[in-house]
């Protein structure tokens, strides 16, 4: 797998490259500012772009803007955005294109190497990965709407919103994949969402529901 990395702090950039290459993800280019990122995002040979929200020259949200623009030109281009903080506003903007293949994670998550690498692979494969912080905020805010769900179903919903597959949810909750499927069917029926077998479309439906 070939990755593009955009991060302005040299230490973090080197760390990310080391981390990715240790897990058989080739870093084909590493950039440190917005103009080089915009150019690098045009490369046809990247499977996933991992980028920081804040980049020079102004150090505000260049990375995010570049990501949203790049995906407008190349729909479905897998992009994983890393940030020191999460904002619902940014999550919304990243999810607006509805094609999946997008991730939004706190930089802290890099410290959990296994999970981080699995998130990178998931995004590269067209999945949607949202930081637990984003999802938890949404769940807090929309708590009242989820009153109809049992505690078990809420837990499944939370895992689903994080972008986990049925198998991963089953592992995390120590239940069978079949039981997970049943819970999901119940959730979709209770929240009146269109059922779908596609993992990614399901995640997007749940996130869209929570953001509404």
């Amino acid at each position: 797998m070939r990755a593009l990395v955009a991060e302005d702090h040299a230490i973090l950039r080197a760390g990310l490259i080391q981390l990715l290459e240790a897990h058989d993800i080739e870093v084909v280019e590493a950039v440190a500012d917005e103009p080089s990122l915009v150019r690098a995002l045009e490369r046809p040979d990247i499977d996933v772009a991992i980028l920081d929200v804040r980049l020079p020259p102004t150090g505000t949200d260049e990375g995010l803007r570049a990501a949203v623009q790049a995906r407008r030109r190349r729909p479905g281009l897998p992009i994983l955005v890393l940030s020191q903080y999460v904002e619902q506003l940014y999550a919304r903007e990243l999810l607006a294109s509805e094609e999946g293949a997008v991730g939004y994670l706190l930089k802290d998550r890099v410290t959990n190497v296994q999970q981080f690498i699995s998130s990178v692979r998931q995004v590269a494969a067209g999945g949607t990965v949202m930081d637990p912080e984003v999802v938890n905020q949404l769940l807090r805010r929309r708590g009242a709407r989820l009153a109809a769900l049992t505690p078990r179903e809420r837990e499944v919903l939370e895992h689903m919103a994080h972008g986990r597959s049925n198998a991963a949810i089953g592992d995390a909750m120590s239940i069978t994949e079949k039981a997970v499927g049943k819970h999901i069917a119940n959730i979709f029926a209770k929240l009146d969402l269109p059922a779908s077998d596609d993992d990614n479309r399901r995640v997007l439906a749940v996130l869209a529901y929570l953001q509404r």
Binding site: H9, D52, R54, L55, P56, T58, G59, T60
Partner: peptide, 8 residues
């Protein structure tokens, strides 16, 4: 015109 701020 964005105010100067520390990069991430």
């Amino acid at each position: 015109t964005t105010p100067s701020s520390e990069p991430d």
